[in-house]
């Protein structure tokens, strides 16, 4: 693998890592396979597109806003659409999140149509060279920002009271409830946080790639693989899973052809499920 390819895979991996963490937290800790996750990521992209077009605010700044907005949306969805259905089991939460995806998809189609959109910031074309490899500036920035956000998420989960509460319900729900942790509140915050991470990913994504409603399915396919590779609900696991998937895809495209790259990821996912159900480096959180 050439140096340039390594750099490309690494830069893509940073974005995959951030994208996978939100989904993995929602699934692993709140226990919800969020089929609307791709829609939430795209909402992040489209929201930053509006802000960019109307107020000319850079996506790297507007991501604070899109993140906050999607946090609220995630909290709303959890509280009113998911929490009442938890007892019904996996069929209900899957179908409801799929229904939310349909609604969001419809809204996007109505407002922006199915065309591909892009956000072209003024420094979009610039790049720099380091150790003989090209670093496109926007890709490098997204990688950096993704790294910072992942680190902050980890700090939040381990060093704040709420974060510790979330970890506690994830590890031992009954025990956490017995010492006075409000489990549903923790699940809600965790789910909202996952949605916000998805939205921020969408905003960052928009600075590099063009996007359309079709991207939703691509995203969902990727985050499943990343979450399973890393072990559900595990932040560093998902980060590693994201980078690993980026490397698999990049090298797969070169060695066996880009037609097969999707199948390679899926086959690896199924093998991990069967052989190491807690992820390649993950520890067991639930079920």
């Amino acid at each position: 693998m050439g140096l340039q390819m390594f750099v490309n895979a690494l830069l893509l991996g940073g974005l995959y890592a951030l994208m996978g963490i939100g989904f993995s937290l929602q699934w692993g800790i709140s226990g919800i396979i969020n089929l609307s996750y791709g829609a939430m990521v795209l909402l992040g992209s489209y929201l930053s597109l509006i802000i960019f077009n109307m107020f000319h605010i850079d996506p790297f700044i507007s991501m604070l806003f899109t993140g906050a907005l999607l946090f609220l949306l995630g909290a709303f969805i959890y509280r009113f659409a998911l929490q009442p259905l938890l007892k019904g089991g996996i069929v209900f939460t899957l179908i409801v999140t799929f229904a939310i995806r349909l609604i969001v998809e419809n809204i996007i189609l109505l407002v922006w149509s199915a065309d591909y959109r892009t956000i072209r910031v003024s420094y979009a074309g610039s790049n720099f060279q380091f150790l003989g490899a090209f670093f496109p500036l926007t890709k490098f920035l997204t990688f950096l920002v993704a790294g910072v956000i992942i680190y902050l998420t980890y700090q939040f989960m381990t060093n704040t009271k709420i974060g510790k509460g979330i970890q506690a319900v994830a590890l031992d729900k009954e025990g956490a409830m017995a010492v006075g942790v409000d489990d549903q509140k923790m699940y809600l915050i965790n789910f909202a946080l996952g949605t916000a991470l998805g939205g921020v990913t969408g905003t960052l994504w928009a600075t590099i790639y063009s996007f359309s409603p079709h991207v939703m399915d691509v995203i969902i396919g990727r985050v499943f693989i990343i979450a399973i590779l890393g072990g559900l609900g595990n932040i560093w696991g998902a980060a590693a899973g994201g980078i690993l998937l980026a490397f698999v895809e990049t090298s797969g495209a070169i060695f066996v052809g880009s037609h097969w790259q999707e199948a390679i990821g899926l086959v690896i996912m199924v093998l991990v499920l069967l052989l190491r159900p807690h992820g390649l480096i993950g520890k067991k959180f639930f079920g």
Binding site: I33, I90, H259, E262, A263, M269, V270, L273
Partner: peptide, 26 residues
Amino acid sequence: VLRLRGHYFAIATIGMNGAIMTVVQN
């Protein structure tokens, strides 16, 4: 795959479907 329960079974079948589809495509 039927050794997996709940979420894991559902997701593994999605993965298998995707893999079979890619084979057919190629």
